[in-house]
């Protein structure tokens, strides 16, 4: 299990033949606590069903990638995990989703607390039209932090965490929208880190930025996964192969296959996965 925290590339993990579906409970190294458990998830937009009986367990730390063709439900699934789908009227959900051991769709769940714990980075970089500093300080501020020194410290740590500090430390009070697209996305990551989440959801975070910026974000994801559980949606299979420890393949609202990335990309169990991976459709 230590491979999840070590950042070792997938080729090193090839021999490891643990079954990811049931690995959560049966470990003895202590750091593979099951972070997200999804059981029998069905999700509906109005009368249209978008997700069909999804079951997965995501372990603490490491990167889980969700792949699949457009409209397959991978983004919908991601937004189930921090209840962003609540914003869409007429959605309905069945099943049980535990995050860090708690049922997040229980009526007693505090959505604010959930979203503090489960941060999100969007497809389009979406910094606020405020300064770089204010963007990062926003989260801690709305959760009640007023102490200036503490805020300064969190802003610095978060920007370092987002691998942006060196580029912006001399212009923290410049408008965030003056940054490049890739920098804006790293700012959004730093902004999400500032509320000290445990899980980071990323919804195609590199699809709107250039290849060099993408490379930086990928490196950053590998660094961050040593401290955070990262679930990333990507339409880019190579990206999933490069940065994830586990991969789930979605097709038409169904999770066809879920397993270690190395296994999914080399020995897929399902014919549809193999067809997708080898580029026969998608």
């Amino acid at each position: 299990m230590q491979i999840l925290n070590s950042g070792i590339r997938k080729t090193d993990k090839m021999e490891n033949n643990l079954n990811p579906n049931f690995a959560c409970e049966t470990n003895d190294s202590g750091n593979s606590y099951c972070e997200v458990q999804v059981e029998g998830l069905n999700f509906y937009y109005g009368s249209k069903q978008a997700l069909f009986d999804v079951n997965i367990e995501v372990k603490e730390k490491g990167v889980a990638a969700l792949i699949g063709p457009s409209g397959c439900g991978k983004s919908t699934f991601l937004r189930v995990l921090n209840r962003m789908n609540d914003l869409i009227p007429g959605t309905r959900l069945e099943g049980r989703i535990n995050v860090h051991g708690e049922d997040i769709y229980d009526p007693s769940t505090d959505v604010v607390e959930l979203r503090k714990k489960v941060g999100m980075v969007f497809q389009q970089p979406n910094p606020f039209p405020k300064s770089i500093y204010e963007n990062v300080a926003y989260g801690p501020r709305i959760h009640g932090l007023k102490n200036r020194e503490k805020l300064d410290q969190i802003v610095e740590e978060s920007l370092k965490g987002g691998a942006l500090w060196d580029e912006v430390k001399d212009r923290l009070h410049d408008p965030a929208l003056a940054l490049s697209g890739g920098q804006q996305q790293r700012l959004c990551i730093a902004r999400a880190l500032a509320v000290q989440p445990r899980i980071l959801l990323m919804d195609e975070p590199t699809s709107a930025i250039d290849p060099i910026a993408t490379q930086r974000i990928e490196d950053l994801v590998r660094e961050l996964c040593q401290e955070y559980t990262i679930i990333i949606v990507t339409h880019n299979m190579q990206q999933a192969a490069r940065i994830s420890d586990f991969t789930g393949f979605f097709l038409q609202g169904e999770m066809v296959e879920w397993g270690e990335t190395s296994q999914i990309f080399t020995k897929p169990q399902d014919q549809r996965t193999e067809d997708y991976i080898t580029g026969r459709f998608g």
Binding site: V112, G119, N126, P127, Y138, V195
Partner: peptide
């Protein structure tokens, strides 16, 4: 997107 960013931060 601004609203979503804020809500996703727990706002």
């Amino acid at each position: 997107e601004y609203r979503h960013a804020s809500l996703a931060l727990g706002g």
